[in-house]
Design a protein around this nucleic acid. Structure first.
Length: 703
DNA sequence: GAGTTTGAAACT
DNA sequence: CAGTTTCAAACTC
């Protein structure tokens, strides 16, 4: 990969996808798989082999890990038995891919493994291993992300992902309500919390010498988890398609396998599985104001600066704003605090007073976060979704004009009375998205789209609602969902993910299934079918793939007997409702940069939802006919005819919280994992800032 | 930099 | 669920 002399990444050499793989997919322990991969996975026993290796590796990491994996191996074994030509369980050392050009070895898919390994530089990793794993699971469930699959990870990440890069990027979601579109990546990282951190840690850039050395130096701020995808896309658009870092980006080295080569290497672990999100963010390429439209909040932005200069993005800054919070009364434990809301710790750049949003108060932070989520499960959900497409014709990523009403929407809408949605007071405006019918603004003059301007966004929301409603209906009728889902903490905003856990109380620990990246429900827009403004051809390929996958699934279900008694084999079926649901929409998934997918935090727009192991997939499919019904009822309609207008089942008020009513469940359980983002001690916290900040980041304010 | 305005978040 | 209060960012001067 090309590292600039300053330690930055050469734009041309940076491969967003690569970044994703290392950053999010691995570190988070969440590996997203796309439909193609799933199919491949189902037939590729070698992947199981890889999984096995990983398992072995993890076993060495500690009891926690083993426990976490609990039963997973048995499941794996069973699954392998089902696969013809499965590889024997060899004790081959786990190899991690090292991206070419990366100064630091990057852990690619062996994510979990890497996470569990103690970093050469610190003991924190082992200490956090168990927690991290748990957190990963938690986030996975919350974001509808599945824990990293051990199966074929390397292959998947190394190849599939790479291939995916060449595919059109269809949709992306913005997390940041406040318009952090340019910092989407950052946001994602944050959301995954430790996982993210881990990812970051795994990412070459993160561990690159410069980064490591500077990580402490880097301002702990980072991007706020709001709009990650966008940044990627934008970067691409700006840089010609494969770069995460723009010209203005910090020179933090990011691994970018230029040769696609993978060399086996030991994976040095960051001293911080517990690293704070800020660290990740800092490590991540950061591009603010790339388009000049993005208005990121400071919390959403990293203070990365090529020059190492740190400056508070306030005011004067244009485009690079990196402001942080300035809370005085809330102790940075309320959503008023951008840092807190973003799932990151406050950093030195913050001017907050009496801040508790720091690593040393992790417990408090977590608790507070849980409280908030108990009140509003969507409190930390992404607020803005955006759709991005790539033109198939030229392979160039085409970012839909964010200013167009249909390109993005604030999910809850604004409530502006006096600003006419023309100032940053307006969250829609701040996010550079148009107001939608869900907004209650008065006198809307949002330049990105006035309230009432119809667009796909609304339709998408409706679609989402529709599907969701069905799903919920389905769940409630069949009691598939456990009451656990009723717990706001367990609920994933808008899209609860279920899992077959049968008897596995500790599903969260045993859930390792192949996964597929699916747009999270919150990424509704992501699911937009290519109708209307989007040319059918735009998604034709992906749709075809999707349909293929669906068909395969159906076929499998119809041709195979499912032995539900074999719980181990089933282990779990993680159904991201949105994933399955929108798998049709997933057309975009195959095209999604892995980076985007992997960087999901909470409410990640792209949540790898349905990654099934072969057995799991089959059984899951068969398991519940109704599930099929849902898929068939909803997805086909969309998938079968791109040109067919979406059926509007129900329009949900953006302001309404989608909380599923209590349901009894038999087979599906929502993982009860704390939703709080991994707020692991960050290298450079305010307290510790003394160590860092030597290399202040260049923070410029948003436009 | 201080003060004002604004609207989200929190509270009742 | 609506109204009110609190809060911190955005904005103005």
């Amino acid at each position: 990969m090309g590292s600039s002399p300053s330690g930055g990444i050469d734009e041309d050499l940076v491969d967003p996808l690569e970044v994703d793989l290392t950053d999010s997919a691995h570190s988070a322990g969440l590996c997203m798989m796309q439909s193609e991969d799933i199919l491949h996975l189902l037939t590729d026993s070698t992947k199981l082999h890889g999984l096995e290796q990983k398992i072995d590796c993890e076993k060495d990491t500690g009891q926690d890990t083993e426990k976490a994996l609990g039963g997973f191996q048995s499941t794996l074994e069973q699954a392998m038995q089902e696969l013809p030509g499965k590889s024997s369980f060899e004790d081959n050392p786990v190899e991690t891919y090292k991206q070419v050009g990366c100064e630091m070895p990057s852990v690619v898919c062996p994510k979990v493994e890497s996470d569990l390994q103690d970093p050469p530089c610190g003991p924190s990793l082992s200490q956090h291993a168990g927690a991290a794993h748990k957190e990963v699971l938690h986030y996975a469930s919350r974001f509808r992300l599945e824990p990293l699959q051990f199966i074929g990870e390397n292959e998947y990440c190394g190849e599939t992902t790479r291939e995916a890069l060449n595919k059109p990027v269809e949709n992306m979601i913005l997390h940041d309500p406040k318009g952090q579109q340019h910092c989407g990546m950052h946001t994602h990282c944050l959301q995954f919390g430790e996982a993210q951190l881990n990812n970051a840690a795994n990412s070459p850039s993160f561990w690159s010498p410069s980064n490591i050395g500077s990580s402490s130096n880097l301002p702990a701020n980072s991007g706020v988890p709001k709009v990650l995808e966008t940044s990627c896309v934008e970067v691409r658009a700006n840089s010609g398609g494969r770069q995460l870092i723009g010209p203005n980006q910090p020179t933090i080295p990011i691994s970018s396998p230029t040769n696609g080569g993978h060399s086996s290497s030991t994976v040095p672990r960051p001293s911080g599985i517990g690293l704070h999100l800020n660290s990740i963010i800092n490590a991540m390429p950061y591009r603010c104001g790339t388009t000049g439209t993005g208005s990121m909040k400071s919390s959403e932005r990293g203070y990365l600066n090529i020059e190492g200069r740190k400056k508070k993005a306030s005011a004067a800054n244009d485009g690079d704003g990196c402001k942080r919070c300035n809370c005085k009364k809330t102790k940075c434990l309320k959503l008023y605090c951008d840092c807190f809301a973003a799932g990151i710790y406050c950093a030195e750049p913050c001017a907050c007073q009496g801040c508790f949003n720091r690593p040393e108060y992790e417990d408090t932070v977590l608790e507070t976060r849980q409280q908030i989520e108990s009140r509003n499960p969507l409190a930390f959900a992404p607020k803005v979704v955006q759709r991005i497409t790539e033109s198939p014709a030229n392979s160039n990523v085409e970012v839909r004009n964010a200013s167009t009403p249909s390109s993005a929407r604030h999910k809850r809408g604004c409530n502006c009375k006096k600003s006419m949605c023309l100032k940053k007071y307006c969250e829609c405006y701040q996010a550079n998205v148009g107001c939608s019918n869900g907004c209650r603004c008065e006198g809307c003059k949002n330049v990105y789209g006035k309230k009432g301007d119809s667009g796909m966004a609304e339709d998408v929301f409706r679609l989402e609602s529709s599907f969701e409603d069905k799903l919920e209906m389905f769940a409630s009728q069949d009691g598939l969902l456990q009451t656990e889902m009723c717990d706001p903490h367990n609920l994933t905003p808008l899209t609860p993910s279920f899992q077959f856990s049968d008897h596995r109380k500790d599903a969260s620990k045993s859930r390792f299934s192949t996964r597929r990246c699916l747009p999270s429900p919150e990424s509704n827009i992501t699911f937009l079918p290519p109708y209307g403004k989007s040319p059918v051809s735009e998604n034709s390929h992906s749709h075809a793939l999707l349909l293929k996958d669906l068909k395969n699934i159906e076929d499998m279900s119809s041709h195979q007997d499912l032995d539900y008694s074999n719980e181990e084999a089933i282990d779990e079926f993680s159904l991201g409702y949105d994933g399955l649901l929108h798998s049709c929409d997933l057309s975009t998934l195959p095209n999604l940069p892995s980076s985007v997918n992997s960087h999901c935090w909470r409410n990640t727009p792209f949540t790898p939802v349905a990654q099934f192991s072969r057995t799991q997939l089959i059984r899951a499919v068969d398991y519940d006919e109704k599930l099929h019904d849902v898929l068939e009822d909803d997805m086909p309609d969309i998938l079968k005819d791109d040109s067919t207008p979406l059926k509007v089942v129900k329009v949900s008020s953006p302001n309404k919280k989608r909380v599923s009513p209590p349901r009894s469940s038999r087979k599906f359980i929502l993982q009860a994992v704390p939703s709080f983002p991994p707020l692991t001690p960050r290298i450079d916290s305010k307290d510790s800032s003394s160590q860092n900040m030597d290399d202040p980041q260049d923070c410029s304010s948003k436009t």
